[in-house]
Design a protein around this nucleic acid. Structure first.
Length: 504
RNA sequence: GGCGCUUUCGUCUAGUGGCUAGGACACAUGCCUCUCACGCAUGGAACACGGGUUCGAUUCCCGUAGGCGCUACCA
């Protein structure tokens, strides 16, 4: 019988959400949607020392911006709560006891200092079947001594008793069968009496079981501990409903060795976090995709293709298309370098595809920040002419500021090349001609000027280039009448006459 | 060090026991053109290495090398 698909994204609230985490969440989302299942948002805050205030809200806001929607979990409600692990202490305690009672786990009283000493003393020390009897735990010590320690309030941890010499098989949806020998596993700490919280491994298994998670889609860094998780499901007798695993490859630096880090972004000029992050402790600010002017659709599309492909040549895909095409078995096994130049290209493509009115709305604050007040209608016309030329909306300002501000000086090189001896005379003629036009529409200007150029035998290039220099101040921009037509007759003539007087 | 995962153009990747090894980004050149862009066209560019298996391996197997991850009372 087919189980309902239920997947989860379970970050630790220790800081801003890394872009690799965003991709993991995206794949979970696509998978859930495609199968008509649920996506659960769980907070794994079992390490009280690493808790960072604000991180949880940051993560939620990030997904809201990106358009990744959760069906249940922290802040979303649901029947399987609480979804914050720090609020599930009693549940974990109960399951720790189950393991203890069945002899699958034991209590260990070794202090961190004692363990450090052991590691210093013995090279590659591992707490496992070969060493546990020489340590201080409920297996090696007399019952009375253990009871006395507990009685006197000694802190302890609960360790999983791994039986050596067993081949543990993990059947991964992306990597196939992965087998490891249980002898190399150590007796992992499952629970700490000090803060009455479990560690990741125990909490993870208990929650996934209780929340009826059907598929665990997570990063490759978890692959080495997957066998331990299988053993835990077995110890609890939950093997029948154990979720299917899929371990995703990691995101690597654009160049050089290692996995993608914040430093790479700083160095090469791209964000690695969805939103800007203000570190509450250091006060440091890290840039985000949102504040850096990336469109969320572009980020999603780019990320989806980093480590997965639809099997055909499609590249530009909406969220719905991604949902329809996503396939875990088509995820690549090797790590993917973060190709930020391609991400910029995606942004360019999404700007082109987005309606002019939407881009105009995003552009408005940029224009206003330069002290300009204008209308959305005017911006929309400019955007339709200019948006194909930029990678980011804010770049529109540099590309088209002449629509709002008259040139104060004229680019020297362009002036030398485009403003000839007789340019002033010809521009004066042009100014007179334009002044005489009652209909200043783009079409009418185009018609009148062409007729004039033809009748005088002038060159198209010499006229238009000088005209451009006068209105723009340099040699760039769209078709000339798309400029003069929009800035209007009065402004056009004023710029023309100023150029004539300044350039001579 | 140990264990695991992994390896196709610079990058993201498709693909097959026999193909001119495909696409995209980036790069170069050309075209378009009133400029700058956009766009379009064209081009260079890859099966890590060594052994097998096979009539034939980029593809299957083994090894080597490189890369990545894990090896906490972190996740």
């Amino acid at each position: 019988m087919e189980r309902r698909v239920r997947v989860r994204f379970a970050p630790s609230p220790t800081g801003p959400l890394h872009i690799g985490g965003v991709r993991t969440a995206l794949y979970n989302y696509l998978f859930a949607r495609q199968h008509g299942g649920d996506l659960v948002f769980r907070i794994e805050d079992t390490d009280s020392n690493r808790f960072v205030p604000g991180a949880e809200d940051y993560i939620i806001e990030s997904f809201r911006w990106l358009g990744i929607k959760f069906d249940e979990g922290v802040s979303f409600g649901g029947e399987y709560g609480p979804y914050r692990q720090s609020e599930r202490r009693d549940i974990y305690k109960k399951y720790v006891k189950v393991l203890l009672d069945s002899g699958k786990a034991y209590m260990a009283f070794d202090t961190p200092e004692e363990l450090d000493a052991k590691r210093a003393e013995i090279e590659n020390f591992q707490y496992d079947a070969s060493t546990r009897m020489s340590m201080r735990n409920s297996l090696s010590m007399p019952e009375a001594e253990v009871a006395a320690l507990l009685e006197s309030g000694h802190q302890y941890v609960v360790r999983f008793k791994v039986e050596p010499g067993e081949k543990v098989v993990v059947n991964d949806l992306i990597r196939g069968v992965v087998t490891i020998d249980s002898s190399i596993l150590d007796d992992k700490v499952l629970y700490k009496s000090a803060d009455e919280l479990p560690t990741y491994h125990l909490a993870n298994i208990v929650d996934d079981h209780l929340m009826e998670i059907s598929h665990v889609i997570r990063g490759e860094e978890w692959l080495p501990s997957a066998p331990l998780h299988v053993l835990l499901y077995r110890a609890f007798g939950w093997e029948e409903t154990m979720p299917r695993f899929a371990h995703l490859s990691l995101l690597l630096k654009p160049e050089g060795n290692g996995k993608l880090s914040k430093r790479d972004g700083d160095r090469l000029g791209f964000p690695v976090f969805p939103l800007e992050w203000h570190d509450p402790k250091s006060g440091a600010v890290s840039s985000g995709f949102r504040e850096s002017d990336y469109l969320p659709e572009a980020v999603i599309n780019f990320l989806a293709l980093l480590g997965w492909n639809p099997g055909d040549d499609s590249e530009l895909m909406s969220m719905d298309e991604l949902i329809a095409k996503f396939d875990l078995s088509k995820c690549s096994k090797a790590g993917a370098r973060f190709d930020y130049k391609k991400m910029i290209w995606f942004n360019h493509e999404y700007i082109i595809r987005k309606p002019d009115a939407d881009i105009a709305r995003i552009f408005m604050p940029v224009v206003e920040s330069h002290g300009i007040s204008t209308t959305l209608e005017y911006l929309e016309k400019i955007v339709s002419l200019m948006k194909g030329r930029v990678n980011f909306v804010h770049e529109l300002w540099d590309a088209c500021s002449f629509y709002f501000v008259a040139p104060v000086e004229y680019d020297e090189k362009t002036a030398k090349k485009r403003w000839k001896e007789d340019s002033a005379k010809k521009m004066e003629e042009l100014a007179c001609l334009l002044e005489s036009l009652d209909d200043f529409s783009i079409e009418n200007q185009d018609k009148a000027v062409h007729e004039w150029i033809e009748s005088k035998g002038y060159g198209m290039g010499e006229i238009m280039n000088a005209f451009r220099l006068a209105l723009v101040g340099e040699g760039k921009g769209p078709q000339m009448f798309d400029i003069s037509g929009l800035i209007g007759k009065e402004e056009t003539l004023s710029r023309l006459r100023r150029a004539i007087s300044v350039l001579g």
